[in-house]
Nucleic acid binder design. Sequence first.
DNA 1: ATGTAGAGGGTTTTT
DNA 2: CCCTCTACAT
Length: 761
Amino acid sequence: MRAEEEAYDPLLRDLNEAQRAAVLATEGPVMIIAGAGSGKTRVITYRIAWLLKKGVPPWQIIALTFTNKAAREMQERIARLTAPEQAKALWMGTFHSLFARILRAECDAIGYPRNFTIYDTEDTKSLLRTILKEVHLDDSKYRPNLVAHHISMAKNSLITADEYANDPDIQAENFTRGLPMLGKIYQLYQRRLEKSAAMDFDDLLLKTYFLFQERPEILYKYQSQFRYVMVDEYQDTNTVQYSIIRQIAAMHENICVVGDDAQSIYSFRGAVIENIFNFQKDYENPQIFKLEQNYRSTANIVEAANKLIARNKFQIEKSVWTHNEEGEKIRVIQALSDADEGRIVAQSIFETRMQTRAANADFAVLYRTNNQSRAIEEALRRLNIPYRIFGGLSFYQRKEVKDLLAYFRLAVNPRDEEALTRVINLPARGIGTTTLERLSLLASENDVPMWEIVSRARQFTSELGSAPVARLEEFAVKIQHFSVLAEKLSALEAARRIAMESGLMRLYYSDRSPEGLMRYQNLEELINAVKDFVESRQRESPDNLPSLSAFLAEVALLTDADEKDKDQADRVSLMTVHSAKGLEFPYVYVVGMEENLFPSQMSLTDNRELEEERRLFYVAITRAMRRLTLTFARTRFRWGNLVHCEPSRFLFELDPQRVEFPGQRSFEALQPRSAIAGLRRKSTLSPQAVQNLPTYQFTPDKPQDFSAGMHILHNRFGKGLIHSIEGSGIDAIALIDFEEHGQKRILLKFAKMKILSSADS
DNA sequence: ATGTAGAGGGTTTTT
DNA sequence: CCCTCTACAT
């Protein structure tokens, strides 16, 4: 197609100039920096539609997203732009789901069965608890949550269990952390997963990486297939994701990454914001497009957000602007307590609805932490305002649902030890803790999955006793029967029969309490989910019946955000700022704008983390289309006691021209002078100075500013702690312990380092 | 084997 | 505060 024809293609008419350029640049490395509200999703979907229109077969395009929801929405939009069959044949989905698909196809190469189980975080923690108990480690010191986090971070950084356990630096670090056994636990955990034919979320990525690394012919196959690679939210990729993308894209280099460094908010789970900064170095001659026109928000909101984010030192230069009207000023409201804050928000929603005829669904209340929802909920209920909470316990995490799923899992993969221990005595069949302990011991002595012992219990009669053996045999026969059902029947039939014959339906039915009833209904709901799954699969290919194992494969990667909103009722949305990313609402309330909450107190000591909090606030602000309201409370219940709160420093970082204080004369009137002075002092950088800084720059502090005990950030070696300083003046040399690079001697006059926190803080 | 009381611990964010 | 785990009693 010629350039002039392209300009007339109806597909391109809906795009502005920058968007169109980004869509048309299909070949070679491309980075699209998409400011908030600049039509990012539109560009991705149109770009893919354009490729399809040019005749690229859909299966040659892989498009990676972070949530199933994003993938689904884009796929739907592409289906509308092109044809549904085409959209369906795209490799479009989350990193986890697409790589799980590849791993199942290539399972032989990694020594896993096709039906491997995916452990969710619950399973992971439960397995860790078991291991900790077995090696007699104190789980209040080795908190499963903490251990899981360290293992996850290691996996996200491509460090295997053996590497982790054998690396002297890591060992030393864990020793000083007071967790010397971490490496050992990681190894045990990994062996246990493999014995269970299970993978955790991170394994789906890590094992894909090593598969490609160790089997070039398999990598070659996928490299050849995926001629076009697209990655959404590139600023949130971690090291494994980044590395796999490089592997896949290496052949054709038709890679397009889309993101916004200003919205990078997931470093806590291993995201490396540098990935987006480094794109220009990683790929040759990349084309860079910046989508800077905001279509979403009023000028007041856009400008306030710009000015706020300009305070961050690490960023890619861009200027988001809008043609939209000036709009209302941002409202900052003080509340006396968290309950009062809820009341104010609810009242305001009520009034706004009356004045503007806005729908409930036009409102969102955003908060930093999930537990803040409570006060808001109560207030909304009092005014009879319907609401919906996003996040929290997902359907698939509820106990009874996990119980039945465990039976499904066992039917498909009896080696799944978490599933086995979960239901081996549910409903109660006289297999108590003693028997379970013996089973576990036998399994590790014989180095086989626990299921081996259960299914051959008779051979261990002397260890287990004859009564338990009889019960175990009965249980084993039942599971084997379920396996046959799962193999022979459709997912729905198998699910129904397993639900009945496992005894779970009866168990929960017999509980006549309201909670019991709820649980029973949830089981039915799960069966319905299987039904939906079967029906939607059959719509795609009517000839073959989807199996239970196919259902499990899909369900393992669903989260609460993906639950179908069958309930389209008109409700106010309540959610964390994190889960609001990518969404927009006409009226947004950001509550809890207080020090130690937003920014979170965990972030205060580390400048990088504080910048991430600021980006998070940027995300919050830019969700709003028409009106943005920020509230903070002077007191709040925390851990059950009332604490005094200070307004967030972020409030003081907003452009005063764009803010108003309904019912207050000014910000100053809200508090004692000293508090203001203190907050003001913390934000000394003038916005102009910040804006004039070059792209992704690094401003080092001066040599004389450093002293022993400081935490610093070095431009090459990363984070470190100054051990001591020898000499003085221009020849001073610092001995620094770097987190990643060990101890180094650095001449201060040449060092490019920043102070993260000083010794006394 | 099941239930209850009491202690202890956790609050950042999630595929 | 609220949830979960444990210990102990039944």
